[in-house]
Design a protein around this nucleic acid. Structure first.
Lengths: 209, 209
DNA sequence: CAGCATCCGCTTTGATACTG
DNA sequence: CAGTATCAAAGCGGATGCTG
């Protein structure tokens, strides 16, 4: 394990999670929960498979990740964060919050996974009517569908489709995100190719500002 | 510039500040303020000089760091964080907070600079008697002396010596930090080689818990 | 198929030497 | 002081192969 050999808390943290890909592996485990090797690889487009294996081993040695054998029906190895690993959540969120402004730049050619929306969206969106019944918005991009749900004054994401969504957003990631966080107003996003089904008030309820 | 090419806020942040040494350069600029090249190098023991130059150039292009010509008496180039760079403070603090527990492990052979104490200390120490007059504790290790000062319910650090410190801590970094944050009680730290001059109540005033 | 290990060409890093 | 130049070693990305 390469180390900075500096008696500094930040340097010690980076000794463990500062290598290339490591933070993104933590992201996957934080957002998806316990995951199989193959699911991690799917959530980390571009990673070399040997690197993923190596990083997981290092993180296990460092006490950040634990591997466990899944119960009978699945019968595969699962990787999960330890409590120590869970504690990286706020650091990771702060970094994600810092990076959120870059999401407005051109993203042509970038890979995308639906659950990555979690970062800018849960950081920026609020439920302006927390006393009303919860609403759900289904988000469809070329990646897997996710459902946004108002919860506790904010919003949460979960994978999958909604039974009876209050609104449905369909389009490329940038337009979907732009419409959600209010970078684009709904009309402009529609002109650029976003599809929106449902009452615009549903969207307005969660937009910041 | 190497990129993950993922449309994800965290990945975008890491595209900019995820390379080796980059976060530590930000640390130096956050803790020391505008700095000369040589001072940065001194605060980053182990960095190759070409890497420091390259990283500074990249950070400048990314709008995180700005270079400026210092006024006449100094007449040298200064590097400083832009407002965008300053916004990395909370992310950096969260990472440092996560790394703080590693400071209890053996640090034999690690390099040390006094201002690095800032991370664990400002995160953990509180002033239990904010209504009393402020106290100062001078910290002397083999690195440059620093002064801890109670301020606004917490503590702050500044480089240099104190005129009339209320207490003086002298010894290796681990013992100094251990005594400050309460990992070691004062007697035990003394047995291991820490020197403490002053009223123990001064130390007790800032210790957590 | 899931979960790696091995090999290979390329890039990045670290150490040192040198310059305006 | 503030870097640039050089070069060996390590790390990375991509492809492929092996094992339950």
């Amino acid at each position: 394990m390469r180390s900075y050999h500096q008696y500094c808390a930040l340097a010690k943290a980076l000794d463990v999670v500062g290598d290339r890909w490591t933070m993104l592996i933590i992201r996957e485990l934080l957002l998806r929960g316990p995951s199989r090797y193959t699911d991690l690889r799917d959530g980390l487009p571009g990673i070399a498979t040997n690197l993923l294996a190596e990083r997981l081993r290092e993180l296990e040695e460092a006490g950040v990740v634990a591997r466990e054998d899944a119960p009978p029906p699945v019968a595969t190895t699962l990787y999960r964060l330890t409590p120590r690993g869970e504690q990286l959540r706020s650091a990771l969120y702060e970094l994600g919050r810092w990076g959120a402004p870059f999401m407005t730049e051109d993203a042509e050619g970038d890979t995308f996974r639906s659950h990555w929306l979690t970062f800018p969206a849960e950081a920026l969106l609020t439920d302006h009517a927390p006393d009303q019944p919860a609403v759900t918005i289904e988000v469809r991009t070329d990646a897997a569908p996710v459902v946004l749900e108002t919860s506790g004054g904010g919003v949460r994401f979960r994978p999958g489709a909604a039974e009876r969504p209050d609104a449905v957003l369909t389009g490329p990631p940038r337009l979907v995100l732009g419409a959600l966080v209010g970078m684009l107003d709904l009309e402009e996003a529609r002109e650029r190719g976003l599809q929106y089904e449902g009452d615009p008030a549903v969207l307005a309820r969660v937009r910041p500002g």
